[in-house]
Simulated assay, not measured.
Amino acid sequence: MASTLPLLALRTFVEVGQRGTMKATAEALNITSGAVSQQIRLLEDRLGFALFVRERQGLRLTEAGAKVHPTLLQAFQQIESAIQDLQQEQAKKVITISTVATFAASWLVPRLGHFNQLYPEIEVRVEATSSIVDLRRDRVDIAIRHGLGHYPDLEAIPLIAPVLVPVASPDLLDHEKIITPADCLNYPLLHDIDRADWSLWLSAHGVDRDPRVLRGSCFEDDFLLIRAAEAGQGLALVPIEYAQTEILAGRLVQVLDKPWPARFAYYIVTQPDVSEREELRLFVTWLLKQADSQFK
């Protein structure tokens, strides 16, 4: 017996074993009854024994045929299932989004359920990282980044400009009240990584430059700033949306009602051909509508 059996003959054997007649098998496989008979004869010749008993009503499996038929039937069912899974995977529309953890947790992820309801056929994968990504090399479709919008050879669409407010632990404020922006300088100031926002915020509120603005630790992530403020380490200047949960729970307080837009904004960063993929175009449009509705 040859080491490799003909696949079509095996498939024909499985179908005849299920259906019991040449005619029914021919219709299922879209071939002629003569071709069915030829494939069965080929397989039996290769095996060296009969697989069917020819009867007036059709074909009946021999003892040997009945022994191997369930295994081969299961094998072909598994092949069909694997092919269907592959086709479904290829047909699925997947979008990979890269953004910083703070933005993902506080703004993007809570809204994604709405997008999933609108477009259930599109799968959104969110990667939370503050590292610089190469949209082509890293297989990222859309990056949402906080910056000035300078991204060479890429499309940068303004999304939202967070409003910064000073927050602190209630325990930190027990010994001295904050009445004016200048009073913030009496406390350690917790900074973002470039230590720029406090200077700009104080300047916007008419406070002259002061060396005390440089005091305090700096953190790469706004959530780390919030945790440090909760721990009473100083005042943090953060987007109000990021601290809402802590403020409502009483773990933080907004020390002054003097918001000021950050000099940086969040941008949707894509490759120039984003409109060529419908799922990306739909997601970008949805993002912009979400941002627009937030400020209405």
Rank of each mutant, 00 (worst) to 15 (best):
M1P: 06
L5W: 13
L7A: 12
A9S: 14
G20W: 05
M22D: 05
A24T: 13
T25H: 06
V36Q: 09
L42S: 12
L42C: 06
L43F: 12
D45Y: 08
L51N: 11
R54S: 07
Q57P: 00
T62F: 00
A64M: 04
K67P: 00
V68L: 14
V68Q: 04
V68Y: 09
V68C: 06
P70M: 07
Q74C: 01
Q77F: 07
Q84I: 05
L86W: 05
L86Y: 09
L86A: 11
Q88A: 10
Q90N: 06
A91V: 01
I95W: 02
I95T: 01
S98P: 01
T99R: 02
S106D: 08
S106P: 03
F115I: 03
Q117K: 13
L118Q: 13
V126N: 00
S131Y: 02
V140T: 14
D141Q: 08
I144W: 05
G149F: 14
D153R: 13
D153M: 10
L164Y: 07
V165N: 03
V167S: 01
S169T: 02
H175A: 08
A182V: 15
L185H: 09
Y187W: 10
Y187L: 07
R195P: 09
A196F: 02
G206L: 06
D210P: 01
D210L: 03
R212F: 07
R212Y: 12
E220D: 07
G234T: 08
A243C: 13
L252H: 15
D257C: 06
K258L: 08
W260A: 06
Y266N: 14
D273V: 06
F283A: 04
L288P: 08
K289T: 04
A291L: 04
Q294K: 12
